[in-house]
Amino acid sequence: MDSPRPHERPTAFDRMLTPVHRWIWSDTNRRVQKLLRFGETETDGGRDILRAAEVTSDPLLRRLYLEHAIDEFRHGILFRHRAAELLRVSRSHSNIGFQGDWLAPGGHGLDDLQVDGESDQTMLAFLHLSEKAAASRFCIYRDVMQHDPPTRAIFEEILHDETFHMNYTLTQLARVEPQQHKRHLWRARLSRLWKAYLRLATSLAAILGSILLTIQYFVLLPPFAWMAKRAAHRESAGWTAVSPTSSDSLNRQY
């Protein structure tokens, strides 16, 4: 194997998680799900970058963003096609349990970035960091995929593109903001950290909410469920007459 180029070295954190990634990718069903998810992420990211191309006033950035978006759409197709091939071979279906998504968020995506409201500088800094993170992660995926050469080849190909994306976003950031491009990168890093925290916090809140609601479901609902089922038995199928006064007032929410 060729020695990795400097930009293709995974981060220490990603290297630390290599055994987990190896385990996640070892199973065909999990691999299919991951690839399908990456396909969606890349396509979504492509749409956002396409939007960036449409809103920027810088002609060169417009062209580069457009090429970038086309690359992302192509990656989406590559992932989907590979997943379809694996599906065909394995005949696997959707429910595959643990996927380790929180460990391996996959391609960069654009989180909740509101592309329309962002400046070129912010967009470029954000893209650069996203691509860098994705390149690091894809590097690990490629390395743990020795048992699946076609999937490995896809990661290899995408990694090459990600390297271009990572580099052009940095050079363009230096072009459009020669004095303060490092400041923008730091702001983007902080923004990513903040968003990561928000994601984690909302995920935890969602889990807690689900637990509480599930408890309520089994503790509080049974008598009401019994009554609802009894009521349902009394209902006849077919037409229900609409009372002429039922919609008299538009003030009611009920």
Binding site: Y217, F218, L221, P222, A225, A228, Y254
Partner: peptide
């Protein structure tokens, strides 16, 4: 009418008890 819609979702969850246990938290949230 949002509350009327809520009424329908809640009623359906109750009628499908206990099969609706997975859908219920999602729908309520």
């Amino acid at each position: 009418r949002p509350m009327l819609k809520f009424d329908r979702v809640l009623t359906c969850a109750l009628r499908a008890f206990p099969q609706s246990w997975r859908a219920f938290p999602k729908a309520m949230k």
